[in-house]
């Protein structure tokens, strides 16, 4: 049961993080296309936001690992 939960959780995390980072990438490339001279600033903001999403996704992933390894009951 823990393994099933971990697998499902990992899948849902991947969906969520994928949508989030995909939306960042979409709007960042659109902004760069509209304003190529601001590409440096946009890239910085993009990496920063992606890092935040990644952080949430990784915390979820850690929970899944704990579930799969049966740590903490």
């Amino acid at each position: 049961m823990g393994l099933l939960a971990a697998g499902l959780g990992a899948g849902i995390i991947a969906i969520g993080a994928g949508i989030g980072i995909g939306m960042i990438g979409k709007s960042a490339t659109e902004s760069i296309a509209r304003q190529p001279e601001a590409s440096g600033d946009i890239r910085g903001a993009m990496i920063l936001t992606a890092a935040f999403i990644e952080g949430v996704a990784l915390i979820g992933a850690i929970v899944c690992i704990l579930l799969a390894l049966q740590i903490g009951g």
């Binding site: 890092a51 935040f52 990644e54 952080g55 949430v56 990784l58 915390i59 992933a61 850690i62």
Partner: peptide, 11 residues
């Protein structure tokens, strides 16, 4: 800082 630690570690 927790997310900071987990991010680097997990990557």
């Amino acid at each position: 800082p927790f997310a900071l630690a987990i991010r680097l570690f997990a990557n």
